[in-house]
């Protein structure tokens, strides 16, 4: 922290040791998931707590894909997550643009309403939602999940999009409008290309959130062919709780999409989180 003096060597070494510990803590559970998933079934018990599998196999992944319903769960989850991400991003982009570019009466109230949705126990609405959805005959449909997830995710996505729009000077749109654009043209030709990273980050964030939602999916879906990944995996676990290798292989499948998205979007999230938190 001092301006010129180099910190002592001992200090630097202990810093790296601590960082390594953090890293080990962060990655070990995921490593274990991967390890069991590539261990042949017959060795799972004998290998036990060994850090490294003595034999390596992809059989578990193969049987998950061929002999279980996980492909259906996967397909359902992809559909729900992409649907939610696309719908949420469109709505949030419009709302974020309004927050970023306009001063209007009631702005604070609307922001307040959106913040409140991030605060109260969503469990309180689980019973009414169940009854409304079943009353509409939409139980067991993926559409109902998309609608509910979109509503949950719009507020944070809106704040995220707003911070991206705030980063684009208003002058650019005005210049475009003077150059002959309508507002829509200005947004399409100037603002949109500059917000692409922001849109991608929002898409990724919402995708991940929808991908991992569990409670509403359990509540609103009960037939096997409509289950999303979390529900499917959980059902699988409670039904066949001994097929460790296959479960962990399925877990790895569930992990991959959100990790890919995360690595791509993490630096944008810092921006969104910071401005969101400061505004609160």
């Amino acid at each position: 922290m001092s301006v010129f003096a180099k910190p002592a060597v001992g200090w630097t070494i202990s810093k790296y040791i601590v960082l390594a510990l953090y890293l080990a803590f962060a990655l070990f559970p995921l490593y274990w998931l991967l390890k069991i998933s590539v261990t042949p079934e017959k060795l799972i018990y004998s290998d036990g707590v060994a850090l490294w599998p003595s034999e390596f196999t992809l059989d578990n992944f193969k049987s998950v894909l061929l002999y279980t319903d996980f492909l259906i769960y996967f397909k359902n989850s992809i559909f729900v997550s992409f649907g939610t991400a696309a719908l949420t991003t469109v709505l949030a982009a419009a709302a974020g643009y309004a927050f970023s570019r306009f001063q209007f009466r009631g702005k604070k109230i609307i922001i307040g309403i959106m913040l409140i949705t991030q605060m109260f126990p969503l469990l309180i609405i689980i019973a009414p939602i169940y009854r409304i959805i079943s009353g509409m005959g939409l139980l067991n449909t993926l559409t109902s999940l998309i609608v509910v997830y979109t509503a949950f995710n719009v507020p944070f996505a809106t704040f995220l999009m707003q911070s991206f729009f705030d980063g684009i000077p208003k002058d650019l749109e005005e210049a475009a409008m003077i150059d002959g654009c309508t507002r829509l043209q200005a947004v399409r030709k100037v603002v949109f290309p500059l917000t692409l990273p922001g849109l991608a980050a929002t898409l990724g964030f919402v995708f991940t959130a929808a991908w991992s939602e569990l409670l509403f999916a359990i509540m609103l879906i009960n037939s096997n062919d409509k289950m999303t990944f979390p529900v499917g995996l959980l059902t699988f676990v409670s039904k066949f709780s001994v097929d460790w290798g296959q479960m962990m292989a399925a877990g790895v499948f569930a992990l991959v999409p959100s990790c890919l998205f995360f690595i791509f979007i993490q630096r944008y999230l810092v921006q969104g989180l910071t401005s969101g938190a400061v505004k609160g």
């Binding site: 000077p169 002058d171 650019l172 005005e174 210049a175 475009a176 409008m177 003077i178 150059d179 002959g180 654009c181 309508t182 043209q185 030709k189 100037v190 290309p193 500059l194």
Partner: peptide
Amino acid sequence: RDRDIAMVFQSYALYPHMDVARNMGFSLEI
């Protein structure tokens, strides 16, 4: 857009994703 005026902004407001030629020709393009 319908007033047929040009404006030079304090911040210049150049479109960051367009090269100089496209920046200058943008209004004609539109």
